[in-house]
Design a protein around this nucleic acid. Structure first.
Lengths: 203, 203
DNA sequence: CCTTAACTATACCGATCTGTATACCTTCCC
DNA sequence: GGGAAGGTATACAGATCGGTATAGTTAAGG
């Protein structure tokens, strides 16, 4: 299920989990560079000694934060896809439904990967492949779902769905207008209908 | 032309301009919190004394950075809109053309406003209204342009264009796939054709 | 029983951070 | 010719940064 293995993965003791939870909240809310390890330790109710015994350095906390978030999102999305009706269009729309629910619960400030990318940028940073990896995975998912619906234009349709989805996450984070993910879902729906209408006559 | 007045605006001496240019480059490339004033001063070839004489504090440099970038983008976009053909659809597409050219020149890491928002978040920060202001302004622009094309669904069409545009900027910044702004432009075009086809029969 | 893992508490290190102070040097303008 | 204004150069202050060191506590397990 995961794609970002081989790196990281730490002994997840109770204290380590509390550190990760505190760090995730603080990083997402205030930004990575704006949050110090002293604050993370204090908010987690943990000593700095313990924090460094578990994670080794701050960078590792960042890696665990993003890897964990990525993992949780994929599991969350998988649940929605499993529960969705088998029709290809319904499965695409289930992605937007999952995003809408996820945003309402954990993500009122936009995509954590996009936000982290604003602060990291250096491709040699160990967290970088997690960020780009999730986006590539999402594009592949949209493309795969589009293939079941309109095989000859799957790549094109997948990219359009990707843009709508990413745009909706940004619009959600900056509160550009109300419920942008619902709007993106609606737009995706008309897009899918059009694709079904023109596509089922392949070569 | 500008919407973010009343705040900031500093005596733009030659040294101050060099500071602003260095800060803009560093902030965008590495993130706001990751760049210190010592580095900005050094890169600008300016003493810290001079930097603080002009800007007063780092926060003010951030404000000037975003306000200046907003101003430049609006002027850049205005130039493209003035040069565009008067047809409503052509003017919408001119926005995407402007974005594509702007991204190629100054913005290979996504939207600076979105990236800044990842680090700032606090609505009481003096830079916050600049960030949200630009997004609101862009939505209003898309909606206004859509109104000339399909008045009764201008709000809906404007939002869709906004999502496509924002999504393309993110995809560009994370290199999710090649030339996403061109893809968004193409998608906008089919969207506009469909809107023209169904709309010119208003009440 | 005794080791080991997981922790607390506290104090410290050097580096870097934003911001200030002191002193001097030009150029322009009244 | 004498202030301002806009600079340079350097040194410093206090806070905070990531990270380490030392010492002691608690619980589980062979």
């Amino acid at each position: 299920m995961g794609s970002s293995d081989k790196l990281q993965r730490i002994t997840m003791t109770p204290a380590a989990r509390r550190v990760l939870e505190a760090a995730a909240r603080l990083f997402y809310e205030r930004g990575i560079h704006a949050v110090g390890v002293d604050l993370i330790a204090a908010e987690a109710g943990v000593t700095k000694k313990t924090l460094y015994d578990r994670f080794g350095c701050k960078e590792q906390i960042v890696v665990e934060y993003l890897a964990d978030r990525d993992e949780r999102w994929r599991a969350f999305l998988a649940g929605h896809l499993d529960a969705a009706e088998p029709a290809p269009a319904a499965r695409v729309l289930a992605v937007f439904d999952a995003s809408r629910e996820w945003a309402a619960q954990h993500s009122h400030k936009g995509c954590s990967m996009v936000n982290a990318h604003a602060e990291i940028s250096d491709p040699s940073h160990p967290a970088y492949p997690i960020i780009t990896g999730q986006k590539q995975w999402m594009l592949a998912l949209f493309t795969d779902l589009a293939r079941d619906l309109a095989p000859e234009r799957a790549a094109h349709l997948g990219r359009t769905l990707m843009l709508l989805h990413e745009g909706a996450l940004v619009a959600q984070g900056l509160t550009i207008f109300a419920d942008p993910i619902a709007h993106a879902r609606e737009q995706a729906e008309t897009l899918l209908i059009a694709a079904i209408g023109t596509s089922p006559a392949p070569a």
